[in-house]
Write a protein that binds this DNA or RNA. Sequence first.
RNA 1: GGCCCCAUCGUCUAGUGGCCUAGGACAUCACCCUCUCAAGGUGGAGGCACGGGUUCGAAUCCCGUUGGGGCUGCCA
Length: 467
Amino acid sequence: MPGPRVRIAPSPTGYFHVGTARTALFNWLYARQHAGSFILRIEDTDRARNVAEHTEGIQRSLRWLGLDWDEGPWFQSERTDLYADAVAKLVSADAVYACDCTPEQVAARARQRGGPPGYDGHCRDRRLEPGPGRILRFRVPDGGVTAFYDLVRGEVSSPNGAIEDFGVRKSNGEPLFILANAVDDADMAISHVIRGEDHVPNTPKYLLLWDALGYGEHPSFAHLPLLLSESRQKLSKRRDKVAVEDYRDEGYLPEALRNYLALLGWSPGRDREILTLDEMVAEFRLEDVKSAGAIFDERKMQSVNAEYLRALDPSLFVDRAQSWLRARWEPVGPLVQERARTLGEVFSMVDFLFLSHPTIDAEDWARGVRRQPAFAAILDAAAEAYTDVDWHAEALKSATAAAGERAGVPQLAKAQAPVRLAVTGRSVGPPLFESLQQLGRQRTIERIRAGRRRLDPATPKGPQPGA
RNA sequence: GGCCCCAUCGUCUAGUGGCCUAGGACAUCACCCUCUCAAGGUGGAGGCACGGGUUCGAAUCCCGUUGGGGCUGCCA
């Protein structure tokens, strides 16, 4: 008697997101509760947008959160034969047709109609031969309604007339999300599709495809409420700070993050909030998940984390803090080792990695500013250069050298000084580029900007003399 | 614009027709404790979006309005 089969299907196009983590958690809870299988599938069909580093990040984040998977990771990029077979089936059933309209043409016609954007079915009856340069589109029925039952939302339906002829295979032959997604769910015998609410509009298309491919009984669906930013918009990788690993680096405990995430859209009831994983597994009910979006509130998450921290056995707390501290400076350890005369000196060499704002040594700073007329120009150039450089020591070195040249200071030794002062607060310390690599892009650039502001004549605070 | 979804304190939520004078947590304010800060304790302020129904009775059911969100890609 096999249990349910669920999956988390992230795409490696960005850092692993707290929203994805919440979806993964709910899938995982469901699988564990029903002795089912939790499957990891990497949706990397869009080769142009994939970043290998993110594939690693997905797995690291999942493991860190304790969400172990039973199968996978499967990579869609390695399953292209499956999609090709499905496409062949769709073609021979005349469920899809080839279309050679460019996106520009589609948009232009939509503008001309003055109607809504979207594809107008232009090539529906042109009977073009499928092939390179031609996208394959699904022939959506003109009439009728596609409906499904959602474990969270109840009955959901939409008229087929509102669904345009969506693409299933790109003109370069790559499968599109909706196709790969449905084919894989069928192939992997997924019984419950538990995913974000943003996929609700995809579900009718998925079902149309599913039926056209003759896959039989539909999986069950549960669309989870979206995690929102403070502005009530869907949490976005671009706008918001959302990477799970950022929170790890800030010192959140995985069990605390997990607990907080569980509370978004679900509640164990009876006024309880802190609960163990076992309790969650025992009590979680998809049917009890709310359907309204939830704002991701970092302050609340902090208080949950604080509660977990306090509950730790003191010696365990020291251990946990220790390993966090250690992870922060360990990468520059060997570099510090060469320079420290006593262990006591280690601290002042790495303190900048821990402080939210570096302690600026007033004398070093004043001397640095005095000696380098292009101080400000170098900081500006560096901040700009660091914005989209590969965040590795070697690349940072070239970027800094280039920034120096742009500021009229071709010697790296001189060009690095203002950056070092702004970022570490001192004129001496471990090698700069490895230090920056460890500090991270965001904090580095923030500090350079702060250094830049420090250079500007102080803005008068109190009443102006004589005013 | 079209389609879809949603609606309890600022935020996360409890609530599934009478137990609701709507409970808890975060945040916030006051006080207590206290060498500081936390933690803890006590108390305060703060919400059922609005309008119609249904019902003896509605935060809970129905309809509408308003508001918010998602989707509308040869992204996933």
